[in-house]
Design a protein around this nucleic acid. Structure first.
Length: 310
DNA sequence: CGAATTTGACCTGCGC
DNA sequence: GCGCAGGTCAAATTCG
């Protein structure tokens, strides 16, 4: 039923796209009718054929778009169902565990054990974290699982003061202090995720009370620092401070071309510049994804169809 | 040689 | 009070 209108719309589209096509019969001089008559007929036929092809293509794309929309709706429904199921399970578990574990250790488990859990966990953590005065943030960095180095390059200079194997995680936890200590109170704990050994989980406590070293570098000179990103894999996840409204961002920065951008990311995770960087990287990784661009193109063509039909 | 890292000992908080 | 686990200290070691 859409095909008729599709033909019309595609023809009109083609009119706009083909500058050599006569817009009006009056525009074609009559004296050429005899000489170019056959040619004109051929051209018209080919244009009609082309319009037909375009109409078919648009039809195909719109139906594909429809299917994708339906799939997306189904996925959303499934996600919501799973989400509510997970919340149920977690609420049951938490009531059992709450009397077993101390608040502090519970918070740690929330940090390191449930890295990929639902955001409700984040919220529950944040509620508990309200008891803490220090600002706590978490950054995940993807590295090679075989790499035993627990260094997370974030632009600041850190001094390692301890390492410990914890009960819940076979991989050791490294303790870092900002090299500006004791004037800077910030501490950092780095440990591999139990669920994904290739993921380093860095927990920051406190706020830096000094300028970001990279910003200072950038102010003084625009060169250097390329080695800083040598170990940087991908900033996989960046999640909430104490504000529960902040979403978890999953970001793939693993492409080699992002080295320069990654350098810029070495700013404090709470800074507006860092957040702007995250947004930019999200946009760029989306536009690099051929599936995304394809889906976007289909969606746009669907919109165009809707518009031309109305 | 000085700075950074490693690592075992020690401290602290919590549950039993 | 004891044991456990996380966190910190500081001497020893490594590295540039």
């Amino acid at each position: 039923m859409e095909s008729k209108s599709l033909v019309d719309s595609s023809t009109s589209l083609d009119l706009n796209l083909n500058p050599f096509r006569p817009m009006d019969h009056e525009e074609a001089p009559n004296e050429f009718d005899g000489v170019l008559g056959a040619q004109a007929c051929d051209q018209k036929a080919s244009i009609k054929e082309e319009a037909g092809h375009l109409a078919e293509e648009l039809d195909r794309i719109s139906s594909e778009n429809k299917k994708l929309t339906e799939m997306l709706a189904r996925m959303r429904e499934n996600f919501n169902a799973l989400q509510s199921h997970l919340i149920d399970i977690e609420s049951k578990n938490s009531t059992k565990e709450i009397f077993i574990k101390s608040r502090k250790r519970k918070a740690e488990e929330e940090y390191f054990g449930n890295m990929f859990s639902h955001s409700s966990n984040e919220e529950s953590y944040c509620k508990k974290a309200e008891n803490f005065n220090t600002k706590v943030s978490r950054v995940c960095v993807r590295t090679d699982a075989s790499n035993t180095n627990l260094a997370v390059k974030d632009g600041y200079q850190w001094r390692k003061y301890g390492q410990k194997v914890t009960r819940d995680n076979p991989s050791p936890r490294a303790y870092f202090r900002c090299s500006f200590a004791p004037s800077c109170p910030v501490k950092k704990k780095v440990q591999r995720s139990t669920e994904d050994p290739s993921l380093l989980v860095a927990t920051y406590e406190g706020e830096h009370n000094h300028m970001h070293p990279f910003r200072a570098d950038q102010l003084s000179s625009s060169s250097g620092g390329s080695s800083q990103c040598a170990n940087l894999g991908s900033v996989h996840s960046f999640s909430s401070m104490r504000s529960s409204s902040r979403p978890t961002v999953t970001l793939d920065l693993i492409q080699s071309g992002l080295c320069e951008s990654a350098k810029n990311s070495n700013q404090h995770v709470d800074s507006p510049a860092f957040q702007q960087f995250l947004v930019q990287q999200m946009a760029s990784s989306l536009t690099r994804d051929p599936n995304f661009t394809e889906t976007l193109a289909a969606a746009i063509s669907g919109r165009i169809l809707d518009y031309t039909q109305n």
